[in-house]
Each structure stands twice: as C-alpha cells, then as structure tokens.
Amino acid sequence: MKEILLNPQLWSATLAMATPLALPALGGTFSERSGVVNIAMEGIMLIAAFFAVLFAHLTGSAWLGLLGAIVVGMIVAVIFAWAAVTLTADQVILGMAINIFASGFTAYLLNTIFGFSGTPTDTPMLPNINIPVIKNIPFIGQILSGNSVIVYLMIILIFASNYFLFHTNLGLRIRAVGENPEAAETAGINVIKLRYLGVALSGLFSAIGGAYLSIGLLNSFSTDMSSGRGYIALAAMIFGKWTPFGSFGAALLFGFATALSMQLQNSAMSKNIIMMLPYILTVLALVGVGGKSVSPAADGVPYTPKK
C-alpha cells in the first residue's frame, strides 16, 4: 500500500481523473446556483467529446476541435435552457432525454461517419505542458508538471469561477435567482436571462470536460465514453456544497478513488469496493453526516415571470 501511495503516477492520475469531474461539477454549480438542475451535462460531455474528435480530425488542429466541441456543447445547453427555462418543462426529465439522445446520436454518427473501425488514429491531441522549474523538483514535478493543457485551464477556471460567483455583481445576481426568483425579479433582475447564462456556462464547462476525454486524455472517441462522469460531477458538486472550491475538492477525492482503483487493477475486489465510495459519500453528505449539503432554495423549480 505504501508503495502505491508513494508512486507519483497515482497522484498525477488523480489530477487527470479529477479534471473531467471538476469541469462539469463547476458547470453544475453555475446552473444550479441559478436554479436549474442540469443532469444533461452527461450528454453534453458525450456530444462534445465526439465533436472534438470530428473537428480535430477535419481541421487537423486539436484547438479547433476544442472550439468546435464548445460550440456544439453550448448549442445543446441552450436548447436545454429553452425547454427548461422558457417552456418550464421538467428539468430532470429533459436532462434524461438529452442524455439518451446523446448516447444514441454520437454512436450513430460514429458508425455513419467513421465506420465500425472507430475514429482515425491520426487525430491530433491537445498538448501537455511542462512547467519550467517545477518540472525539475523530484516527485512534485512529476505530479504537477507535464499534464494536459486542460488540467491547467481547469485550475484557472476554478479560481475564476469562485471570484465570479462570490465577488462580482453578476455572480450575486445568479445566486439570488436560484435562491428566490420572485425577490430577484422584484429587485429588477431578469430571472430568465440569468438562468440561460447559468445553463450556458454549464454547457461550456461540460463541453471542455468532454473534449478533454476524447482529445486531451486520448485521441479517439468511443461510444458512451463519458461513462457517467456527468452524474458523478453532480455528486461532486453536492459534496462540495455548490461552491467551486468544494466541487474541486470533491472531484479530487473522487479522482483519487478512480486512480487508486486503477492502481489496484490486480486485486479486483478492492477495486470495485473503492469505486463505490464516492457514491456512498455523496449519500452521506446529503443526509447530513458531516455537515449537511443544502441545495439552492429554488433549485429545479421552473419560474414564470410575472408581467
């Protein structure tokens, strides 16, 4: 066990596995703080993962792949927002519909565009970045340097989101809309617009997370490759009490569970038991063991403006 814990690979894998959870968890934080439960993040990640590969392959540039993934992901998010916010449809049901659609649609496109042999092997990848000085420190350097550019982008986004949500006017308004939309509207805030913004941001972050899976960690797409990360991200967000830093911390913890289970490949029993832990922890957090997680008051409740 000691050997495993002292292996820097375990810790860099923790960071690598936490990234595709932290990004949608951050997205979910914005969406739910504005009052919209977005379980469609799972589907948005999957769609973004596919289009990242498609655009990267077509243009020969991984960066354009990322951009394409973001555009498509945000289009899906806006469609979701339109149905959920404007048409006041049930958010969880809509999210599920989008996830089923995404799973079928990406698999369908994978087969019709690339055939049954999978995505091309010459698809470009987003670069890994070596940080000068830090990379030369033993142990720490192996963990903190040489990660995918998205890992560093994620860390910047965590800090930026925390600042935005808790230290700007717009952030305050988003939170107000999720807690008490009636009062917010009385104070002259446009509830609908801000909820669109919250959902759009969740689409943006989920799309970056999805692209990371297909052109950050790998350079290929396979069916259902998001494998429930959008849902685990919701758990991380709840565990992190709907805050950017909390979400990041929970994502690290869950990422550690995944990384550890990968290291324990050979003893399958412990691997599957460890994989259960994030889910059990989330249930415990929800029922109030170790400080209860309480959602924004108007989370998941559609709002019809009074005119």
Partner: peptide, 12 residues
C-alpha cells in the same frame, strides 16, 4: 443506435 436517438427525442 437510431432507436436511442428516437427515444431521447420522444421524451424531450
């Protein structure tokens, strides 16, 4: 997988 596409759309 077209079946899943249609299923998702129906629910939507």
């Amino acid at each position: 997988q077209l079946a899943d596409v249609i299923t998702g759309l129906i629910i939507f």
